[in-house]
């Protein structure tokens, strides 16, 4: 029982913390598989978080907030697609611009609208995504191990956690087994082949960027209205970049991305647990070391010291018909 007490809460926290990462990393995957690098995951998550919190606070319900978050992220996504696909501008520059715009815009709007120093009002329970109590929790509660696992790890998560987890097999299926997935993959590798097959590269890339935006919006909503209870300035705190790292570590494939996100979630949960813990000989536990681990792992992987990751060949390149 004591082991369960020690293990279950961090595991449940891992799932919770991994959810926005997973959503954003899958977003980056969809976008890059179509050939559009998305450095702007962070910014889209941030506007998603703000819009979700603002609307949830205004309406008192979580679902309208979620929809607003998705729409706000999609607006930024449209800007990104217009810049990268229609105007063939630099994808990295556009993504950075979106991140900076999102930071300034949300801070400005938050102060103007709510006058709380850049926050939204704290959300009441109804305006948030709350942990669900799965059917049968009570019935199983008395069974020694299973009851606890079912109640606090499998159950007891918000709807967005289940949604994010369900998206992993779904996106694997769509990428691998459907017409859309085939075209998406081809588009990120060799857009001219897609074009000459009579398929619009621009339309595919717009679709991919928008899907990515929807996922970012959900990720943002999950930060502000499921994990948290309202918006705070720059509350995504670099998760968009960690998601980018998870996407790279996962080799642009859904299942490995899930693993990477769970690993980062564990690190995050551990870092929270060990905050302020004194270690013999070391002194206070260096939480920053754990927090820096995802970035360090990504650099090491990119350097090719362990394994090799190969991004989609045409990602980052605007599609221009050559003479």
């Amino acid at each position: 029982m004591e082991i369960l007490d020690a293990v279950l809460p961090p595991l449940a926290a891992t799932l919770r913390l991994a959810t926005p990462l997973l959503l954003a990393a899958l977003a980056g995957m969809v976008s890059e598989r179509a050939g559009i690098i998305d450095v702007g995951l962070e910014g889209k998550m941030l506007v998603g978080a703000f819009a979700a919190a603002a609307v949830a606070s205004a309406t008192g319900h979580a679902v309208p907030g979620l929809l607003a978050g998705v729409m706000a992220a999609c607006l930024l996504g449209l800007v990104h697609a217009y810049a990268c696909v229609t105007l063939r501008g630099s994808q990295v520059v556009s993504g950075m611009a979106i991140n900076i715009i999102a930071s300034g815009l949300t801070a400005t709007l938050a102060l103007s609208w709510f006058r709380l120093g850049g926050q939204t009002p704290p959300l009441p329970p109804d305006a948030r995504f709350l942990p669900l109590v799965l059917p049968g929790t009570e019935a199983l509660a008395d069974i020694p191990v299973l009851g606890r696992v079912y109640g606090t790890l499998i159950g007891g998560q918000t709807a967005l956690v289940y949604l994010a987890l369900a998206l992993v097999p779904l996106s694997a299926y769509v990428l691998g087994r459907t017409r859309f997935g085939l075209r998406l993959r081809a588009c990120g590798e060799h857009p001219a082949a897609v074009d000459t097959a009579g398929i619009s590269v621009a339309r595919l890339r717009y679709a991919a960027v928008l899907i990515a935006s929807v996922l970012c919006g959900v990720a943002g909503a999950s930060i502000a209205t499921a994990q948290g209870a309202g918006f705070q300035r720059d509350m995504t705190a670099g998760r968009g970049y960690i998601a980018l790292a998870a996407m790279i570590l996962g080799g642009w494939r859904p299942w490995p991305i899930l693993l990477a996100c769970l690993a980062f979630g564990v690190l995050d949960a551990v870092a929270i647990r060990l905050q302020g813990v004194e270690l013999p000989g070391v002194g206070q536990f260096p939480v920053q070391a754990v927090q820096a681990l995802p970035y360090l792992l990504t650099v090491i992987l990119l350097a090719g010291f362990v394994g090799r990751t190969v991004p989609p060949r045409a990602s980052g390149l605007p599609y221009i018909k050559e003479r």
């Binding site: 994808q91 520059v93 611009a97 900076i100 930071s103 300035r233």
Partner: peptide, 16 residues
């Protein structure tokens, strides 16, 4: 922070 917004918009217009 409105200045951050202006900066971001300039990056967008001048760059992307």
């Amino acid at each position: 922070e409105i200045v951050v917004l202006i900066q971001g918009l300039v990056i967008l217009f001048a760059g992307a």
